[in-house]
Simulated assay, not measured.
Amino acid sequence: MVLCTLVACGSNASSSQSQGGKGAPGDESSSEPRFAVFSPAIGVMLRDLGFEDQIVGRHSFDTALSESIPVVGSHIEIDDEMLIEVEPTILIFQRGSVEIPERITALAKERGWAIWTYQLESLDDIATTLDDLYLKLVGFPADANNDGDPTTFEVDPTKRFEIELPSARLARAWSPMGPAAQVAGRTLLLAGTDPAGALGPGSFHAQLVERLGIANALTSGGMWQELDLEDLIELAPDSILIFDPRDDEAMIGEPEPITWAQVEAALGPIASLPIPAIEQRRVGVIDHPQALLPSSTLAQVADQIRKTLADWRERAGEP
């Protein structure tokens, strides 16, 4: 059964589509969609849903998709010539502070391309985006046609409760750990160590650990905060999680346990501070290749956090 709190019609993460355009969802006469994806996070979602072969253009910063897929630029600087050359049918953007350039909107209208946009600022945004892509590209169960007329397809929304949408996997991975989370105490989340770049309240990483039942050492301030060594001493976190993605190739095979020497190297100058996290050696390196992306892979990131806390409990002799 789908956890319906993660799936809401008309949510902030729902997409918008331009008028017309071949490859538009629901147009059964159209060929398979061809995606130009201007978001590394959404590129990963499409890959995880099984649609990587239909991605014809990827973001400049993408490291997860096949290198054979042409780069069509970033959300800031789009390569118009390459975009035309790869002949997409759907452009996908991550909604943010940068608007889609008017020339790209005009080009899409001229060439009949659809435009989908998604917001990925929260865990719920991630879940609803993943489900929306699934429902657009895979669809409802065959018997969801409410009136029996194949030409109208009046969707029975209750049919979505009879299938497990992708967000169900995320919901399980993000579910509270209960007493098992107590070993972490007040946890500092870092995405950089020299200087310390901390993930504060409102960030999707902070939301993730809070859903797991882990207390964020930072309770005020922005989603991104730079802290100096004196700040860290005053904060005195009980544990630290460092989000330090490694290359996809490094994930092949059974990973070797990270040694304390490797942790110290990752910490840099923080490793010598007189704070509980260092003294108790409760520092974890979350090195999933997409550890910093607001994408479907946050399920695996949550799994790695759970494993890290389990290791701390085992070392402390706690159940």
Rank of each mutant, 00 (worst) to 15 (best):
A277K: 05
S15K: 05
E85P: 02
Q290H: 10
L6K: 00
G96V: 05
A8D: 08
F243R: 15
F38E: 00
D149F: 12
R95D: 06
L83K: 03
R47C: 07
P141T: 12
D156E: 09
A36R: 01
H205F: 11
C4T: 05
D228Q: 10
I214Y: 04
S16L: 11
P245Y: 08
T152Q: 12
D248I: 12
P88V: 07
L137K: 11
I126C: 00
P319W: 04
E85L: 09
A64H: 11
D27Q: 15
P179W: 04
A180V: 04
H288Y: 14
V2K: 06
A144I: 00
I258Y: 02
A271F: 01
R95N: 07
L212I: 08
K159M: 11
A173K: 10
S97P: 05
F204W: 06
R313W: 02
D311P: 02
E234N: 12
A191L: 12
S175H: 11
A196H: 02
L133E: 01
R160G: 08
P195K: 09
G268P: 11
A277H: 10
T128W: 00
G284I: 03
A266G: 07
Q119H: 08
V44F: 08
Y134T: 11
G96T: 06
L293R: 09
V183Q: 01
G178C: 08
H59C: 08
Y118W: 10
L229E: 14
L91V: 09
M177G: 06
P195R: 12
G10L: 12
L165N: 04
P157W: 06
I42K: 00
V7H: 15
T151R: 08
